[in-house]
């Protein structure tokens, strides 16, 4: 019944939505930021521990749709151990692909984020997929205000 939509709601997405990874408060975070998508009410609190330019740990709390929860969960897994520059580069690539600015059809470079590439066919949902990433970008810039995807 929902065949076509399976490119958006892949099993991995359901899995991360049901059991989000790194879904916890981090007491020794070096940065903490609140993200908000006013359009749908998704909220995220992101905790980041940066040590010597390297992201040692990321976790999050909040409530959102399956796409935004899975995206946040996958993000926390993928950026850990990377430098701030590498993380920024990955954000840029991910953002370009989900907004359709980058029209490639091979998503190997995205690693496990590739399951979210299908979002590009659903413009109304791009903000869901990028909320956690915008929040992370802001946290890395030490821009402590609430970020909003609007």
């Amino acid at each position: 019944m929902f065949d076509e939509i399976r490119d958006l709601y892949q099993e991995v997405v359901f899995d991360h939505n049901r059991n989000p990874r790194n879904f916890r408060v981090m007491d020794d975070a070096t940065r903490k930021i609140d993200g908000f998508n006013p359009l749908c009410g998704d909220r995220i609190t992101l905790y980041v521990k940066v040590n010597d330019n390297v992201i040692e740990d990321v976790s999050f709390q909040g409530s959102g749709c399956a796409i935004s929860t899975a995206s946040a969960s996958l993000m926390t897994e993928i950026v850990r151990g990377h430098t701030e520059e590498e993380t920024h580069g990955l954000f840029e690539l991910f953002h370009k692909i989900v907004t359709g600015e980058d029209t490639r059809t091979n998503f190997d470079e995205l690693g496990k984020l590739a399951v979210l590439a299908g979002v590009r066919a659903y413009p109304a949902r791009v903000k869901c997929a990028t909320l956690a990433w915008h929040s992370l970008e802001a946290a890395l810039k030490e821009d402590a205000e609430t970020v909003s995807t609007e």
């Binding site: 399956a66 659903y122 109304a124």
Partner: peptide, 10 residues
């Protein structure tokens, strides 16, 4: 357990 946004898209 199912967010309204997901309901809307589906």
């Amino acid at each position: 357990h199912i967010h309204p946004h997901d309901i809307g898209t589906m």
